[in-house]
Design a protein around this nucleic acid. Sequence first.
DNA 1: AAATTACATTTAAGTAATTTAAATAAATAG
DNA 2: CTATTTATTTAAATTACTTAAATGTAATTT
Lengths: 162, 162
Amino acid sequence: MDRERLIDEILMLLPVLARGLGRPDPSEAGKLARRGIPVDPTLSPGHVQVLIALGRGPHSIGRLAEAVGVSPPAASQLVDRLAEHGMVERRPDPTDRRVVQVDYVPGMQDIARRMMEGRSRKLREALGRMTDDEARALLKGLKLLVESFEGAHGEEKHGSHR
Amino acid sequence: MDRERLIDEILMLLPVLARGLGRPDPSEAGKLARRGIPVDPTLSPGHVQVLIALGRGPHSIGRLAEAVGVSPPAASQLVDRLAEHGMVERRPDPTDRRVVQVDYVPGMQDIARRMMEGRSRKLREALGRMTDDEARALLKGLKLLVESFEGAHGEEKHGSHR
DNA sequence: AAATTACATTTAAGTAATTTAAATAAATAG
DNA sequence: CTATTTATTTAAATTACTTAAATGTAATTT
């Protein structure tokens, strides 16, 4: 298949995927509801990212913002919501009192993991239809894509045309 | 690398990518401005998708909504904006007067293509660092992902979606 | 040690995208 | 001809995100 054709297809596919990921499905909320956690407000992709990031240990708001790819205020708001629902908590950093460390509420790590099980399952399912090489190539491609599209946004100046 | 690890990484990566795609860069607007088309409002990923979709021929609002992955009202609004800017136009369907066909304004196809050149360039750049096999695997993976995540959304309550 | 500067987080305000529900108009079925 | 279904649009409301300004703490300078 022609490279240009590939580019066209991917260009069309990416936003579709982006939208699909943007809508957490009800089954995720259901998992929480069964544990008495109110879930009226929906769970945005940002919230999901925070939960994933915390799987690698506690994060400060700043590091969380960086990991998620949003501004610090946005990260703070994401944590607000998750905290309201009793999923994460803020803890003061003993070494620097400006800093707030965010972590799962004790016992929540497991629940958070399960809550994302729906997403993981879909992904696992998709990967199940690919060979190891293809799966690796997918990850590589996604990383390159992120790199290309992220790095290019602040840069606009060189022609100084506009 | 472990599959589970891959899943985690991709789960974290996808929303980052989604955000990156969400912000059209200013150079695209510049291309239009030079042709006297006012571009004060920014061009969202949805608009870009519409322009790409029209590359495959005229679409009704409904088909456009489906292609882009949004509700029909949203598609209608996307077309509103693109039409205001003189890039696309609505045309009555001779065979069914409820239907509106959307197409490029004559001569605009070329410009639309060029306008997305920035995006294509980034993508081409990323693909440039991959082998043919890897690139193909990326497309395959993206398609599978879209399929998994799209099909699964109405599914929670039995059937009866939209 | 006091004052200034830098930093992490939060609060506040505003913008843009997208959804659901209701309205309009045309086609089709009985 | 009337009733129902389908395509699109209008309207209202929700949500996520951004920048700018405020607060409290740390580091640095004098």
